[in-house]
Design a protein around this nucleic acid. Structure first.
Lengths: 248, 248
DNA sequence: TTGACGAATAAACGATCGTTTGATACGAAC
DNA sequence: GTTCGTATCAAACGATCGTTTATTCGTCAA
């Protein structure tokens, strides 16, 4: 590319291919998408993929390099911004900021869906793209969370236990993004702003107090829930289920 | 099939195809696996897939019908068995039984890996196989858990909030199974029996008390943790992080 | 004007895909 | 012994895959 003559041609072929490739890979997965589908969506010649990226697999990796990872870093910055909005850096503030980042953060809904589709496909695989994600997105963010939530811990002695608690937290924000179909199916709710706020509150509440927080305390006003912590609330109630039969 | 002449030929071609197809589909996904790979692994003729199952897609669905869903029902029964081992049907008993079912249940490690690979690929898709899973595995099990954990709730009024709490729980057991690569990467631990017991404890602890349970209470003896519930433990400790700076 | 170079194009490459065909083997039923 | 239905097989089908080739276009430097 030498010079830009027309503003409407600013987005050149290479970028259009990356855009369309991300959408298609996210929607159907690497093997289900053909190079012809991508170049057709990007309105360019079939050979353009091999010209700009060498081959299909390299295009896939470039989607992660130039799109997914920068977006993950953007989410990381959004988390820090949410955290600074909080009155104090409490455990609750961290959890709520995390849930907000991943459900109400700076991404559009379409972007979010693409992002987590691509990531969740790699999570189980330990491939090249997974390694890239782990090094440049997961690990730094998890370390940041670890220091925020467990600053008093000797990192050597309690390493694994603390990390497992973190993963319990991460598992939820990931699930509510990548398994949208299942969440919608189970709850009957679409992912509108109201429902996403409800999810944020559910994650915050669950991650702070677990199931010991009685759902009867829900008052329907999701955004206000949990702000005023009630120390009496999160006490185990073994008697709640003790009289229940195992059947029905 | 008419009669069985040889015990070694009990497992006929159709079953061998299903076995190998499940392994390959779980490992690489539907589109990445060719019919030739499957029939080669099953040591039968290429045309056998079309003869026994009509086409490739139907074979995929049959893997879910005859393998994945029955296994999910087996897990459901294992959960009930774990639950009956518990001294009382408390919230903790339900959570622990759930974590044990999905991490130490009746499945072999290879089986578990296959199972969750196949399921997690479908979770986001809302395809035909997903619908099958939702109707015959997810929904009945979630309803059972709902009644176990929230027997006192008017199912109409608190439906969504309670279900979201359930999904927070499910999200964890799913994550620790299907994102093994990431868990191993983050923690540095392989999925041996000791580590799986540690995960069960982490999920149980987190789901009961959330992050308000101080990791300093970990005593390293995973299987004994949480058995003796300490009512003082799960009280919010806002002072723990109040004095912490947002940076570092 | 010329040459060089980046970019886009149509066309074709060999390989592999899912599927179909027609033939063959074999046991059960009559 | 003949017929019939099931199962397996080698071989080939047309379609599509990722990739390569050769050519053309447009722009800038000499």
């Amino acid at each position: 590319m030498t010079q830009i003559s027309n503003n409407e041609k600013v987005e050149d072929t290479r970028e259009r291919i990356l855009d369309e490739a991300e959408i298609l890979f996210a929607g159907q997965g690497y093997h289900a998408v053909s190079v012809r589908e991508i170049t057709s969506a990007a309105q360019c010649n079939l050979a353009a993929v091999n010209y700009h990226f060498g081959n299909k697999h390299n295009l896939y990796l470039e989607v992660f390099r130039s799109r997914v990872i920068p977006r993950a870093e953007r989410l990381h910055r959004a988390f820090e911004a949410f955290l600074e909005e909080e009155p104090e850096t409490s455990t609750e503030a961290v959890v709520r900021s995390l849930a907000r980042t991943f459900l109400q953060g700076p991404l559009s809904d379409a972007e979010r869906e693409r992002h987590y589709s691509l990531i969740s496909r790699e999570l189980a695989l330990a491939t090249e793209a997974f390694e890239m994600l782990a090094q440049r997105a997961f690990q730094p963010f998890l370390q940041r969370l670890y220091r925020l939530l467990f600053p008093q811990l000797d990192p050597e002695r309690y390493k694994v236990e603390g990390k497992l608690q973190l993963l319990c937290l991460i598992a939820q924000v990931l699930y509510f993004n990548f398994a949208r179909a299942n969440v919608t199916r189970v709850t009957g709710c679409e992912y509108d702003e109201r429902f996403k706020a409800q999810i944020v509150e559910a994650i915050t509440r669950f991650s702070l107090h677990g199931l010991t927080s009685d759902p009867r305390d829900f008052d329907g006003n999701a955004s206000a829930l949990g702000r005023e912590a009630d120390p009496e609330r999160n006490v185990t109630r073994p008697e709640r289920l003790a009289s229940m039969s195992a059947k029905e």
